[in-house]
Simulated assay, not measured.
Amino acid sequence: MIHKIPGNSPTALEFYSTQASLYNWIGEYQKSLSILTSNPLIQTQLPYDKYHILTARNYEGLGNYQKAYQNMQEVCIYQDSIFGGKIKHELSELNEKLRTSDKELKIALLEKTQAQEQESRLRHTIYYLTVIGLLLIAISILLHKRKVQKKETELIAARQYIEGLENERKRLAKDLHDGVCNDLLGAILQMQQQSSAEDLKTNTIQTLEEIRSGVRAISHELMPPNFQFTDLNEMLADYFSKMQEISGISIQYTPYPHTDWSSISEHIGYEIYRIMQETTGNILKHTQAKVICIQIEKNATYLIIEVHHDGNWSPHADLSKGIGLRTINDRLKTIAGDYKIEKDKTGVNIHIQVHLH
């Protein structure tokens, strides 16, 4: 029935954009790419970055890595421009608020001058007015100091946020350099050293598969969660499933049954999702664990997360050391939570508790 609808109508465009996504998902990359490139109006049904990500995945599936790379560059430029605009807007607002506070101080000083001039005319009456004026000035100065301190705190928080983003970019650059780049170099050397065409094909495919898994792991770590159409439980289940597929390590996730996940606010859900990402990543990188068990229980007051793994005691177990664990500690502070690590005969236990109200 879709062909009976005008091809440029919103309904038809939405159908074709969904069809392109499904073709990509089942591996029909050429069909998906044909739909995306045949009608420029399809771009109006998808966000700019999502359209180029889908196009890049199709080119990657077809082996056209040059086109895939170009589309991913468009995504990075777009997302960086949005982030840069947001930071500039926030700094502009802070600057405007600081100017307003300066004007308030000038007004307070002017009131003080006027009070002194009136004192020479009406000594007895102005005495009381002067006292009142001084009290008002003192209050104004105290309020001004509080506002200045608040602005300084906001500026420090903004700088820390930017520094955190820079550290995350450095970490990503290091992962790409030490992982993907070195793996690609290894693939090139293997191709140069192999004399048999069949051995060359087998080894090259195996190496490229390892590189693909590494890139997928990095992308999953960076992808922000979207709680618009799902909840914390589904997001965590999907994440643990993907990490198990990528790492080959058994990750057993057991949520408490009959839990109303929709009652958990998006803010707390986002922070918990990032905390579990960092915790799982630390276990996979540092402990040589073979099995990870995760249980989540929610009651009227608390959200309780129990993580157990059979690996070694992490050398970064102290929350005062390591960027990742400092990030966990900072996130827990914003949602009234705590984080505790203990070791027993069966492995390592991590206890996370968040106060919901």
Results as ranks from 00 to 15, higher is better:
Gly133Asp: 05
Ile188Glu: 06
Ala157Gln: 07
Ser196Gln: 09
Gln228Val: 14
Thr280Glu: 03
Gly84Thr: 02
Thr259His: 07
Lys50His: 06
Ser92Leu: 10
Ile77Val: 08
Asp183Ala: 08
Val131Gln: 11
His309Arg: 05
Ser34Ala: 10
Met1Thr: 02
Ile5His: 05
Gln114Met: 10
Met1Ile: 02
Thr100Phe: 08
Glu28Arg: 14
Glu154Arg: 14
Lys321Glu: 14
Tyr65Gln: 12
Tyr16Ala: 03
Ala115Asn: 11
Ile126Pro: 01
Val291Asn: 12
Ser320Glu: 09
Gln79Val: 01
His52Cys: 05
Asp231Ile: 13
Met1Glu: 04
Tyr16Glu: 08
Gln66Phe: 02
Phe227Pro: 02
Ile35Gly: 02
Glu111Trp: 04
Leu62Trp: 01
Gly186Met: 08
Leu62Ile: 12
His286Asn: 05
Gly133Asn: 15
His89Asp: 06
Lys242Gln: 14
Val307His: 05
Ser32Met: 06
Asn349Arg: 13
Ala158Thr: 12
Ile304Asn: 12
Lys50Glu: 09
Thr254Pro: 00
Met223His: 05
Thr327Asn: 15
Arg216Ser: 07
Trp261Tyr: 12
Ser241Gln: 11
Leu136Asn: 13
Glu111Pro: 00
Gly269His: 03
Asp178Phe: 02
Thr100Cys: 03
Ala108Pro: 01
Ile272His: 02
His308Glu: 07
Tyr127Asn: 09
Phe83Glu: 05
Ile292Asn: 04
Thr125Met: 13
Pro40Ser: 13
Tyr23Asp: 02
Asp330Thr: 04
Asp49Ala: 15
Arg274Val: 06
Tyr256Asn: 09
Gln73Pro: 00
Gln252Gly: 00
Ile2Tyr: 04
Leu13Pro: 03
Asp49Lys: 12
His220Ile: 13
Phe227Tyr: 11
Asp338Ile: 03
Leu208Ile: 04
Ser21His: 02
Glu209Arg: 14
Lys298Met: 13
Pro10His: 06
Ser250Tyr: 02
Val75Arg: 03
Ala217Asp: 13
Gln66Asp: 01
Ile211Trp: 01
Leu332Lys: 08
Ile2Ser: 06
Ile294His: 04
Ile268Arg: 04
Ile304Asp: 08
Gly347Gln: 10
Gly269Gln: 10
Gly322His: 07
Asn8Tyr: 06
His351Trp: 11
Asp102Tyr: 15
Trp261Phe: 07
Lys170Asn: 11
Ser140Gln: 14
Ile42Asp: 03
Ile249Trp: 00
Glu198Gly: 04
Cys293Arg: 15
Ser213Phe: 06
Leu46Gln: 08
Ser21Thr: 02
His309Gln: 07
Glu14Pro: 00
His3Phe: 06
Gly311Arg: 06
Ile35Pro: 01
Lys88Arg: 12
Pro6Gln: 06
Ala173Asp: 09
Gly324Glu: 04
Ser140Arg: 15
Gln73Ala: 06
Gln30Phe: 00
Gln288Cys: 06
Thr259Gln: 09
Leu189Ser: 07
Asp178Ala: 09
Pro225Thr: 14
Val180Glu: 01
Trp25Ser: 12
Ser265Thr: 15
Glu168His: 14
Gly337His: 07
Lys67Gln: 13
Arg159Val: 11
His316Ala: 11
Met276Gln: 09
Tyr161Leu: 15
